[in-house]
Computed example of a mutant assay.
Amino acid sequence: MNLEYITRPSSLQENAPLLIMCHGYGSDENDLFSFASELPEELFIISLKAPFKLEPYGNAWYAINFDAEKGKWSDDEQAKQSRDLISNFIDEACEKYPVNPSNVTLLGFSQGSILSYAVALTYPEKVKNVVALSGYINPNILPSEFTNKDYSNLSIYASHGSVDQVIPVQWAQQTPKFLSQLGIEHAYSEFPVGHGVAPQNFYEFREWLKKHL
């Protein structure tokens, strides 16, 4: 396993639905794991730690240059590396743990959300559901032929804070149109918060997830 992680076992002995969590820039595997105790017991939950260490603490899926103009501020090559690391991790986790490889959900926040979209849109045969919190789709980290892939088994829940000061809500608002053009079943919600997950946001995505497991 090329990524560090923590787990919460499922209440099921075999064929459990797998939920993989991808944290945001500057955070770690403990961040989203705080949701685990409130999520369905049948989920086998794995929370990943991003591969690139930041100083003085925290981790990232790829470098961000905060001084650059929009469009030149993220290291897309590093992002593609992380995309493929997560994809490979799905395969390894499905071999190692008693989970159902046909029922894999990615849950990402911010940078982890951007990566979750990228994994699902690049490798749709590996992912059933995506819960994308406070992120957006970056086409630059998708393969050129992604529009030809079969997304018929993929469902996506996306949400964003309407006053997000880190990732503008306008970027997230492109998501429903993008997914519609690919024929992907999706739900999109906005909440009156900044760059974070409001309680009502959590309850909504939890209900969505229960219906899609």
Rank of each mutant, 00 (worst) to 15 (best):
L106T: 03
E29W: 01
K80C: 10
A36M: 11
Y5F: 14
E95N: 14
S189R: 13
Q13D: 15
E145C: 10
T122G: 06
Q81G: 02
G194R: 14
P51N: 06
L106C: 08
Q81R: 07
S10P: 09
L133N: 04
R83C: 02
W208I: 11
A120H: 03
K177Q: 14
K72D: 15
Y57T: 11
F109Q: 00
K126Q: 13
E125I: 09
P176G: 12
P51D: 08
N140L: 10
A50P: 01
Y117S: 02
A60N: 01
F66T: 11
S116D: 00
W171M: 11
E29A: 07
I45Q: 02
N103W: 02
H195M: 07
L107D: 00
N140Y: 08
E77I: 07
F44W: 08
A63W: 04
I46A: 03
I86D: 00
R8E: 10
P176Y: 12
Q81N: 04
Y203S: 13
N15S: 15
V163M: 11
D150H: 12
G194S: 14
F52Q: 06
H160P: 02
N138D: 15
G26I: 00
I184V: 13
A198N: 13
T175G: 03
S37M: 10
E42A: 12
E55M: 06
Y123F: 14
G196C: 12
Y62I: 02
L12E: 10
D164T: 04
S162K: 09
K126H: 12
P9R: 06
E41G: 13
Y157E: 11
I184F: 01
N15I: 10
V163P: 05
S162I: 11
L43Q: 10
V163F: 12
D28W: 04
L121R: 09
N59K: 05
L106D: 00
Q173V: 05
K80Y: 05
Q174E: 15
P192Q: 13
S180D: 09
N201P: 06
V197N: 09
A118K: 15
Y123H: 15
Q111C: 07
D164E: 10
H212V: 04
N2E: 10
E69A: 15
E41S: 15
Q111G: 05
G112Y: 08
N138Y: 06
L19V: 08
P199I: 14
F205P: 02
V130G: 00
G161T: 12
F89R: 08
E14L: 13
P124I: 05
F89K: 06
D84G: 01
V130A: 03
S74W: 02
T175Y: 03
E42Q: 15
S10N: 11
F33Y: 11
C94P: 09
I184C: 02
W208N: 03
E190Y: 09
N88H: 15
F109S: 01
K70M: 14
E77S: 12
A158R: 00
S47R: 00
F109T: 00
L154D: 01
N65S: 14
F33L: 07
P17W: 09
L85C: 04
L213R: 07
I184H: 01
S11W: 11
S34L: 13
E42N: 15
W208R: 05
W171A: 06
Y97A: 10
F178L: 08
R8W: 08
G161R: 04
D75N: 05
K149D: 05
Y62M: 03
L85K: 06
I46E: 00
P124Q: 09
